[in-house]
């Protein structure tokens, strides 16, 4: 009873504890409800050969990464060398999901553009970017209108999904992958998924 004057102090310390914990969280990282759920099926045209469709089911039996990118995405440029390096080591196949290549670019006005013209422009831009910065992708597919992006819960570019042999999403990385992320989170996760599969 004598230490009653200490009560506000302890209340304050408790509050500080909560706030300090809050500071370690990133409110911009929205946890995906798709983790450990089957990845949404899609069939999209390939960047290297648009006449050839690529379907999610084509990767069945493989553990792979789906990386969402676009040539207008500045943060993608930051993570790109990490992906190129990863691809060179042939650790894991990386499929690129080119997200809203034309209509996502703020510098372009894609309104009223015919879908065919938009697709052509998207392919040209995507290829040019890959030629310029290196192509770490086993293949890239075109998500012209961002529909597949919505199905995957994409809300910013880049995002990366780790998908297992059963086609389930096992991990989602939001924002550019740094070498630290890769070593400390993504590669261990990859190992874990491979062992489990």
């Amino acid at each position: 009873m004598k230490a009653k004057f200490l009560v506000p102090l302890f209340l304050f310390l408790g509050l500080v504890g909560f706030l300090a914990f809050g500071l370690t969280l990133n409110p911009r990282e929205v946890p995906s409800p798709l983790i450990d759920r089957p990845a949404p099926a899609f069939t999209l045209a390939r960047v290297d050969d648009p006449s050839q469709p690529f379907a999610l089911a084509d990767m069945r039996g493989k553990v792979w990464l789906l990386n969402v990118w676009a040539s207008w995405c500045v943060a993608c440029r930051q993570e790109h060398p990490v992906l190129v390096d990863l691809a060179r080591q042939k650790v894991v196949p990386i499929v690129g999901l080119n997200y809203k290549e034309v209509r996502g670019d703020g510098a372009l006005d894609a309104r009223g553009m015919a879908l065919e013209a938009e697709t052509g422009l998207a392919i040209e831009r995507a290829r040019r970017w890959l030629a310029e910065h290196g192509d770490p992708y086993t293949l890239s597919v075109l998500d012209i209108d961002g529909r597949v992006g919505i199905d995957f819960g994409v809300y910013g570019v880049p995002e990366t999904f780790l998908i297992d042999g059963d086609g389930k999403i096992r991990y989602k990385h939001i924002g550019p992958i740094t070498p630290e992320n890769l070593q400390q989170v993504i590669l261990p996760k990859l190992e874990e998924v491979r062992r489990a599969g």
């Binding site: 676009a70 943060a75 209509r103 894609a110 309104r111 910013g156 570019v157 880049p158 924002g175």
Partner: peptide, 15 residues
């Protein structure tokens, strides 16, 4: 400077 804002948001496309 926070890392997630480094993720680009695509620009508006259609009216």
């Amino acid at each position: 400077l926070s890392p997630a804002t480094a993720a680009d948001a695509p620009a508006a496309d259609v009216a």
